[in-house]
Every structure is written in structure tokens, then in C-alpha cells.
Design a protein around this nucleic acid. Structure first.
Length: 271
DNA sequence: CACGGATCCTGATGGC
DNA sequence: TGCCATCAGGATCCGT
């Protein structure tokens, strides 16, 4: 569910409310993708300084150490002064003096990992290979083009890999490529500079607009304060197979790339 | 070493 | 509240 916009919407929905709190207790449910990496009780008494985002990771800074949270495919957070009784898919909960933060993640592809610092090996392993932040000033069209030139794989898969640019998942990869008029199967290395520049602009545009719309809620995504996203109503190609293109009217097609479905307009998107 | 595939897990959906 | 196959927003690891 969560790509960059959903993760950022989540962050914005609780960062201000949890900042400055003191951790009272931590509870882990069924195993997530990786072990927590410390004894839960060890974190009691620490202060929450704030919440940052890097790619699709949320970084909860403590006065000593930090927690790295990933929502995987099906994760969502809730933060409230009082939360209802935990359900079967609630696998992490941190009670603080200002409220409780809970991860609900049916598929358990998500993760909560403690690191002593961002330089600790666990953190480096998870964050070290991440590409540039697409909504930051560091995301430069020229450098993006140079990065793509080194990759022969299909542009859609290079976007998903996250080592050139982070945060673009399966929905927004299809959407950005539609906006840029680029067929998802084109080799990244073969994109001309102007086409790479169009894609650069399209990624910023699509992620920015999705963020403004509160993200996409396909199944059950909501922010940590329970707000649903509504960008799913604005998609041009994603999950619209056989429906008419909103621009030219031709039927949207789908294909599989690396076990993921891709959607595109055969007329608007050029090889 | 860049790439493609298998893999982790549960739930929803649709065909039979 | 049938059974089975397929698919789902991610990303790491492994073999080539």
C-alpha cells in the first residue's frame, strides 16, 4: 500500500503529536520482516525527538538511538492517546506519554528495527543504497538522466528498484511513466535527456499531487490519525486495464514486469 | 555486477 | 459458511 506519498502522509499525521514524548513501553506481536534488534524494555524512558522519512522508511529519532519503521505492502500506523484493544494484525505498539503508536500489518512484510545510530550497521544496511529523494532539491534532472544511463533494465523496474530515486512504487511508477509519455518497457539507458527530464518532472508531479490528496487508499490505507487517501480516484492508468485512456480513449493495457503488474496506454506512451 | 526470479505472509476475489 | 488459483501498494537475497 504505502509508497512515498502514503508514508509521508503517515509521518505528517503523527510526527508533531509524538515529538517530545517519553517512551513508556514497547510491545511486539508476531515476527515482522526483521527482528527489533534490542530488548523492547530497553527503550522505556527514552525521549522521542521527532520523526523523519527516508524513502519509504520512517525514522523515529530517540534521545539515544532510533527506530526504523517500514510499512511493507500492507502496513499502516495509528497514533492516539487511547487505542482500542489490539487486533490479530497489530504487531508493534509503543506507548508514550503523549499517545500510543501501533503498526497494523496483515502480511507482515513491514519492519520495526532499532539502531543505536544512523551509522550503525543495521541502519546502513537498510538505508545505505537508497537513491535520491524525489521531492527534494537534490533530485536533479541531469543527474537523474546520468543515473538512468547506467541501467539497461526496463525503466519501470529501475524506478521500482529505488536505488536511482526512492519512493516510487507500483502505482506511481505506472502513473509517472504515463505522464511522461514513456512505455514502461523501454530500457532506462536508452531514454534521451529530454525524455528523462520529462520523467523527472512527472515523478515530482505525481508524488506531489498524491501527497496533497492524502495518498491512495486501495484497500485499507489510512494515516496515523485515520484519514483515508483519495488519489486512487485520479489515476490515469493504474488498475484501469481495458478501460479507455482518459486522454486518447484507447484501451489501457497491462503487462507483468518482475512479478508486478504495469499499466500503460499503448497510444500515449512511446517506445 | 547488473539482472531476473524466488521469497517472505495473509486476505480478497473470482472461477469452478 | 467449499476449494483452488491468482493477485495485492515492497524489497531483499541468491544464482547467473
Amino acid at each position: 500500500m504505502p509508497e512515498l506519498p502514503e508514508v509521508e502522509v503517515t509521518r505528517l499525521s503523527f510526527a508533531g503529536r509524538i515529538a517530545g514524548s517519553t517512551v513508556l513501553s514497547l510491545r511486539m506481536g508476531k515476527p515482522l520482516r526483521w527482528p527489533l534488534g534490542c530488548e523492547p524494555a530497553q527503550l522505556a524512558g527514552r525521549t522521542v525527538r521527532g520523526v523523519r522519512r527516508r524513502g519509504k522508511y520512517l525514522l523515529i529519532d530517540l534521545d539515544r538511538g532510533l527506530l526504523l519503521l517500514h510499512l511493507g505492502m500492507s502496513g499502516s500506523l495509528s497514533f492516539a492517546k487511547q487505542l482500542p484493544e489490539p487486533g490479530k494484525h497489530d504487531h508493534f505498539e509503543m506507548v508514550t506519554t503523549q499517545g500510543s503508536l501501533r503498526l497494523n500489518d496483515p502480511r507482515r512484510f513491514g519492519a520495526v528495527v532499532y539502531a543505536d545510530s544512523e551509522d550503525a550497521s543495521v541502519a546502513c544496511k537498510l538505508l545505505g543504497r537508497l537513491g535520491v529523494e524525489p521531492l527534494s532539491d537534490d533530485f536533479d534532472a541531469g543527474q537523474f538522466h546520468a543515473g538512468l544511463k547506467l541501467r539497461r533494465a526496463a525503466i519501470k523496474q529501475v524506478l521500482l528498484a529505488g536505488d536511482v530515486v526512492v519512493g516510487v512504487g507500483n502505482i506511481y511508477a505506472s502513473e509517472a511513466l504515463f505522464l511522461a509519455g514513456i512505455r514502461p518497457t523501454v530500457s532506462a539507458a536508452r531514454l534521451s535527456r529530454p525524455r528523462a527530464a520529462r520523467l523527472h518532472a512527472a515523478i515530482r508531479d505525481i508524488l506531489g499531487r498524491a501527497l496533497t490528496s492524502g495518498g491512495s487508499t486501495l484497500r485499507n490505507f489510512s494515516s496515523a490519525s485515520g484519514e483515508k487517501g483519495h488519489f486512487q480516484f485520479e489515476t490515469m492508468v493504474y488498475a484501469r486495464e481495458a478501460q479507455p485512456c482518459r486522454v486518447c480513449g484507447k484501451a489501457i493495457k497491462s503487462l507483468r514486469q518482475g512479478q508486478r503488474s504495469t499499466f500503460y496506454c499503448p497510444a500515449c506512451q512511446k517506445v
